[in-house]
């Protein structure tokens, strides 16, 4: 069995408030092994983004987390802000949602990938250029054409691929993708999902957060379903998606277009809330 890359025990996050505050994330347990692919699925407000923020150390200061988030054997929650930042780009890489806002508008895209090699892998200028060319080719971009353009001259899909090139260029082995398909059209959504799979095949550990069942199904790997601050179901994706055991997951399935677009009955949601 491969070594544990990330281990989360009893992660609880509270909002600031008079009586201990509202619970945003309640007793999460997760294990992600090296080279694994893990999807956390849940609706807006289920607390899945808070989990991602706790992992990456970008949790707003006023939120108080408890429990353990062990990353490569180190408990992130016990680190200082400075120590947590030193993990960024070296141990973990956060793949942002909107490439247009994440890329520097005044720098050619190839240069933005090259600088990762130069600064974080101490590559020579020539080596950095060489590696970038290779990565671009793998992702279906040309370093001599698209690479010499600025982000605003490229389409959303191309910029998206530049971000994936950055993730591959980065020495970090753990990639966190928070809603990578948010706001994309179905075609682009499929491509981005496949790129995530490609990252995983190239050896990166991928942790993907989404509200989209189709993305989760296409990705495969391990899956956890989050509902109202808790994880209600987890296991290998094909098993969870084939035979969902929790009523919420079942409801999600009924709501898929090919299953007849049945809305999750409000009564069911209320009952589950009482649980």
């Amino acid at each position: 069995m491969k070594k544990r890359m990330l281990e989360v025990n009893d992660l609880t996050v509270r909002a600031p408030g008079p009586t201990g505050g509202k619970i945003l994330v309640d007793g999460i347990d997760l294990v992600i092994r090296q080279g694994g692919l893990f999807t956390l699925i849940g609706e807006t407000g289920s607390g899945k983004s808070i989990v991602a923020q706790a992992l990456t150390g970008t949790l707003p200061e006023e939120l108080s987390p408890s429990g353990r988030v062990c990353f490569d054997g180190v408990d992130i929650l016990r680190l200082s802000a400075h120590e947590r930042r030193s993990l960024w780009g070296r141990k973990l890489f956060l793949l942002p949602q909107e490439p247009e806002r994440a890329l520097d508008p005044t720098m050619k895209v190839a240069a933005q990938v090259e600088e990762i090699f130069k600064v974080l892998r101490y590559s020579s200028r020539r080596k950095a250029r060489e590696e970038t060319r290779r990565l671009f080719a793998r992702l279906g971009l040309s370093a001599s054409n698209e690479g010499r353009r600025y982000p605003c001259q490229l389409s959303g899909g191309m910029n998206q691929r530049v971000l994936f090139a950055m993730a591959l260029a980065s020495p970090a082995n753990f990639i966190v993708a928070d809603e990578p398909t948010k706001g994309l059209d179905p075609l682009l959504k499929r491509r981005v999902t496949d790129l995530l799979g490609e990252l995983n095949r190239l050896g990166k550990t991928v942790f993907c957060i989404t509200h989209d069942l189709l993305v989760a199904r296409r990705l495969g790997g391990n899956l956890a379903v989050m509902f109202r601050t808790r994880i209600v179901e987890k296991g290998p994706a094909e098993i969870v998606l084939e035979r969902p055991s929790h009523p919420y997951t079942q409801g999600l399935f009924q709501a898929l277009p090919e299953n007849g677009l049945h809305p999750i009955p409000a009564r069911m949601l209320q009952e589950m809330q009482g649980v």
Binding site: T56, W88, D104, M107, I116, M166, S170, A172
Partner: peptide
Amino acid sequence: FYYRFARMKGLGGMHLILRHGIK
């Protein structure tokens, strides 16, 4: 966001300020 993202990519110090900030 691109500035914050540059930090998340692991860039920092003078490189970040000069290449992504000042420019």
